[in-house]
Structures are given as structure tokens and as C-alpha cells.
Design a protein around this nucleic acid. Sequence first.
DNA 1: AGCACGCCGACT
DNA 2: GTCGGCGTGCTC
Length: 802
Amino acid sequence: MNIAKVIVDVPASVINQTFDYLIPEKFRDMLKPGMRVTVPFGARKIMGYVVGITAESQFNKLKEIHDVLDVTPVLTRELLELGKWLADKTLCMYIIAYQAMVPQVFKAQYKKEIVRLTEAELSFDLEKLFAGRDVLPYELLDNSSVSFYQLQKAVQNGDVEINYLVKSKITQKKVTMIKPNQAPYQLEEALLELPKNAKKQWKLLHFFVEHPEEIEQNRLIKHLQTSRSTIKALIDKSLLISTKVEVYRNPYDDKSYPQTTPLELTPQQQKAITPINEAIIKSEHHVFLLHGVTGSGKTEVYLQAIQHVINKGKEAIVLVPEISLTPQMVKRFKGRFGSNVAVLHSALSNGERYDEWRRIHRKEVQVVVGARSAIFAPFENIGIIIIDEEHETTYKQEDQPRYHARDVAIYRGKNHHCPVVLGSATPTLESYARAQKGVYQLATLSKRTNEKDMPEVEVIDMRKELHKGNRTMFSIKLKEKIEACIQNDEQIVLMLNRRGYSTFVMCRDCGLVKECPHCDIALTFHKKINQLKCHYCGYEEPMPVNCPECNSDLIRYFGTGTQRVEESLAQLIPEARIIRMDVDTTQRKGAHEKLLQQFANKEADILLGTQMIAKGLDFENVTLVGVLTADSMLHLPDFRSSEKTFQLLTQVSGRAGRHELPGEVIVQTYTPDHYSIELASKYDYNAFYQKEMRMRRTFRYPPYVFLVLITVSHSNKVKVIQTTQQIVQILLKKVQQDTVILGPTPSPIAKIKDRYRYQCMIKYRDEPKLRKLIKKIIDLFAEDIRKEDLLITVDMQPYQLM
DNA sequence: AGCACGCCGACT
DNA sequence: GTCGGCGTGCTC
């Protein structure tokens, strides 16, 4: 058993296999699968994951592992296997799957350096480059007078050497601790011997006589009003000693969360939790779909099920959408489980995330609450996996590996023989259909815990408003209600359901919209720097004064939808105090929380925002929710647009009347008869489900079929179309009769970074060999991919069809 | 991917 | 002879 099978850090299809390496004697006992190693690879040295250890290899001359980077495996056996499954399922490289499962800091960085090997005089240019040093960063070669060829010769001569380094980004935070270096009585003696004028030293030493235990240097300085130099003086006299101790960065101060105790469950909650608890006790894998209206207390069900799991000595993973990973949510988990919780979300710095991950890895916590990637938490004894707001699109990763957290959760649930709970007020059709078929077990919470009905929803036909001569964005009814609310000292949430919330520039004379010259997308205006910027490629240009097309000076930027709403609202109801939440106002770190806190403190009457305000917020004084344009998403070329509209309307309606005060919802729309708006206003999920399922069946969309999206991109438009066409042809020949191949069609964003993008869609019911076929097709274009910079990406279950 | 190697043509 | 530019093939 002295051969390691290694997946190396080279994301290329020809390298997507294990490589065998000899394990040097010194590593033989400690090297385990799941550890990272550095290995020689060709002329380089690179990082890799050990995925197995064997006694034999079909290769006769093996190189040795250069170094082992971990003391304990970063990937458990289960995660190693999961990564393989993930790569096969989503058609990505193994290394990409593994990298996705560990914190960013484990990604290796590669450095090259030039090392001088001889004392003898080198060439003039080389001597100049070394300038007396023995080691140089390789990059210095670029702007030097030493040519690559010269260097090559020096290497051949044995004068210099190129060193390939693998650097780990890991940064452990260290804190300096101070403690006495001698016994208390010795310190007391030393106290007497201190010079009379060494007052600070005396104070410091005296402190340690009374408190001989170790203390953090910074706290000591603060506490005694002293400085590092004083401490240093005593260290030099070997009375004190300093040590570096590794600490976790703690983004959440555990003490600041008031302890909460389990609430009494309603009969409905009790009924829902019973089978989950049973599965926990019996260690059985089942998927539960917890369909609970907003405010029905799903979270309390989660918390109590988790408590059950903790009592059993097992671990829990809770996934929440990034957007609702607000302090409110964290507070509930930290309040119940205290320091037994690790929180993983995107606002953490790399170092912070690494620390939270290590707390999981070392089994210092039993609960993880986090966004999508938390599904890879390195627990080994999982007792429950919960996905809150199961319908959220953020659970699908949009770049490689293109996985859906729900699929991973169910896979891990099977591995660990534990229940998986999917919770939502508006489950995806996929999940609800599975529950109907009995694949998932359905539990329903139809009542709010406060016993109040869901707020009344009134749908306003904006076409009629227009006929009445009202050209503002606010119906008369909504305006009146807002005013009444403000009169009563109650608060309002207004949502502008708009997807493109960026600011674009348009000429009012000729209608020209400034677009990126490299991408098929409008440029975004950035007020601060007065520049136009492309979000896809980073292209920038100054904001023009005159229209470049017709020279008109009426070229203006169109503010975010919310900005314009804010302005017209200020005209209409001048006394309203408004907090606007959109990309502009929430860019700064923590801005999101700050604005919400202000609203909670009643510093404003109206919270105005985009989708981001629809979820998870809970303000007791909100009695009115207004949706300004309910149908703006409905006409997008996305088969899920009805479902998304229904979900959003239901979610946002749930923001009103969550506590004592009754709530009310006004929905403005130009298509009041559309079933997703009509049924959302009645909170009739079932009818919506039935109706939408019929639509999906008619138009052959999930859950009746599975989708695959293949996107081809290249700088040459003809080549892209040709390639896509070829792919379609091959597919048509090989797939079954009831499989539909659509395309080639231009992608919704037809050009990014000067590369044209075309796509083809596969709709199938049963196509067992499809993965293999697609792999073969990609292999077929391997030449073009390598040499011609052709790119083919495959999304095995696309969510966004872009 | 990224590196070595080898062939070729240009330039001192 | 010296130097730099590509195309090709390999990485345990």
C-alpha cells in the first residue's frame, strides 16, 4: 500500500483521471485519502487530492509525492465519493467538484522562482537581475533584459534552477498571549528589584502576581493602559513569556444572542414533525416536503427536529437562501443552539469562512446554517438535512460544477440514512409532483401560528387606471391605502417586481441605448464615477454628453426602477419617509442589515425595494404590502415565469400582518386575469399547481421532461452556429423518438466578451445514455476546444435558461 | 493547463 | 551561430 491515486489540479479533460504516485517512506503511515498533496507533474509541481491508496500500479516508473499539505483529510471518504458522483452527474472535472466542496483557501496558488546555484560570475544581464539576491520571483523576468533563452541556457549549465512552488492561501489568525515565565514568588522578588522609575513595569508585574494565568496581549494593554514595549521589557528580563495562539475569527459573537427555548407546537406542527422525528430515531432516509404557508412556523419545526438530532449525538445541515441569511435567521439558530452552530454565507471573508469550516471539520459544532455550498459540510454523522425555501433558485449553482443543492442533499441523506426536509410556502412543481407521487412525504402547515388569516389581497387592474387618466405608477386605491397607513402610524412594504434593475442610458430623441461593444447587453451607469460600465466584461467608457448617434443632448440615464418609484412617490405623498433597498443602496457590506434595522426602528414609513424585500422579513408594524408591477416577470422567455410570479406574490404577501395588526395586500397588474396572479391572490397553491402542471405537460417542460442546455461560444459567429448545428444533428440521430432537440438558437445574451453564444436544448423523459453521448460529442470537438478556443458548456438541469 | 522539445526562419 | 516563434505531444 505505497501508491497513492491522485486527482491533480489541472482542469483539462485529458487530465481528468487519477495519476499514480509513490508514497515516500516518511508519509506512509500518515497519508490518507482526502488529503491534499503536492506532486511533480511534468516539469511542474502541482496540488492534488489523494483519492485512494493501493499496492499496485499499471505504470512501472512512478514519481514520488513531493509533500503532504494536510494533517487530517480535508475530504471525508463520503465527500470523495460524493465529488465523483457530482462530477459524473454534472459533467465537470473531478478536480472542479472537489474544489467546490472545500473553502476557497484550499485552492492552491502556484509560484515560480529562479534560484541561483553557483557562486561563479553569471552573464551581465543575469547578475543585474539577481542584484545580489539568491532567489527571485519568476515574474521579474518579464521586464528585465534577460531573455527566456538566456535563462534556459543558464538552467542547462546548472547555474540557476527554476523552482516550482505550491502555495496554500491558508491564513490562520494568531493572537499573542502573555503569561508569567517564573513562579509567583519569584515575580514578587523581581517586583522589589525593579528600578523605582519603572512604574509601568511594576504595575504589569504586579498584575501577574495576582493573576498568573495567560492573557491576550491586546486585552492586557487595554486593561492596564500600557504598551507593547513595557511587556517586551519584562519578556527580555525573562519574567514574562509570549506565545502565539491560533484563534478562530468569530464573525458572530455568541454571547450576544439571547437564549430561546422551544415553543409549544401547534397541532399542525406536531403532526408535521412526528414522521420526521420517527425517521431520525430509526435512522431512515426519507424526503419530506414541508408545505407551510408564510408564518406557519416552519422554522420552529426545523429547530425542534434539529434538537432531536443533536440529542442523538448527530449533526444537522440547514440550507437557507443567501438572501434570507439575515441576522434575523442567524439569531434564531444561535439563540437556540448557541456556539453549537457554524454559519456559512457569502458575506464572510475567506479567512472567516475557513474558520467556520474548521469548526465543522473538527466536530466543534453539530449544526451548520449556510447557503448552497454548506451542503458539503464535512460532517460524518448527519442526522438531518433541511433546505428552507426549497423553491429558491439560488440553490442551483450557475457555474461549474452546475449542481442543485437539493440533489446533493438527497444524495447525502441516502448516504447517512437520515431525513431530508424541504420547506416552502410555494414548493417547486418538481418537488410537489414528487410528493403527489409519494416519492416525497408531504406535510402541510395551512395555518399561521398567530391564528390570523393570510392578509386579504386586492388585485388592481392598471389598464383601468390608465383609462381613468391616472398615469402614475400608483393606483388611486394604493395611494389612499398608503396615506391611511401613514396616518395610523403603520408601515408599508412596496415591491417593484423588476428583474433588470440596473441603470441604462438612452437617448430620448432617437431611442439609442448605449450597449457594450463586446457584449450584447446595455451598459450600466455608475453615478459616482460618471462612467458607463459593462457587468459582463468590465468595459468602461465615460458617460456621453451628446448622443453618439444623433448628437442630441437629451441622452439620459434611466435610474433603477426603484429610484424612479421613489421620486414619484415623493411627489405623490410628500410626507412619506422612504427607505429604498436595491443594488445601489445595499452594495456596501452591512448596508442591507442597517436599512432593515432603520425600518424596524420605524425611522421610515415605507420600505421600497426589489425582490430582495420579498423574503424572510418580519416586521410587526407592517400592515400594507404593495406590489407595483406584478406581471413584469411574466413575459420573460422562461418556462418558470408563472411559477416565479406566483412564488414571489405569495412570499411578499406574507410580509403583512404577521403579528397583532391585520394585514392587507394590493397587487397592481396589467394582466389581472393571469392565473398565477389570480391564484396567488387567493393563496390557492393547489389550483395553481394543477393549472401549471397542465401547462407544463402541454408544452413539454419539467417536471414532465428533463432538460439539458448546451451552450456553444466562440468569437466567430459562423463557427458557433455551425458547431451548434452539428451538435443538434448528432443528437437527433442518436436520441429516442420522444426526445425533443431545440436549436440552434442564440442565447438570451447572444454575445459576451466578443464571443457569440448559441444554444441547443434537449427535452427528454428517459435517455439513459445521454450523459455518455454528450461526453462523446464534446470529445468530438476536443480539437476545436483546445486549439480554436471553442467553448461548449453543458447544464444538465438548467434553471436559468441563459 | 502549462511546459519541453523540436523545427524553422530571421537576424547579427 | 544565436534567438525567438510556433506546432505538437505529454503529464503517473
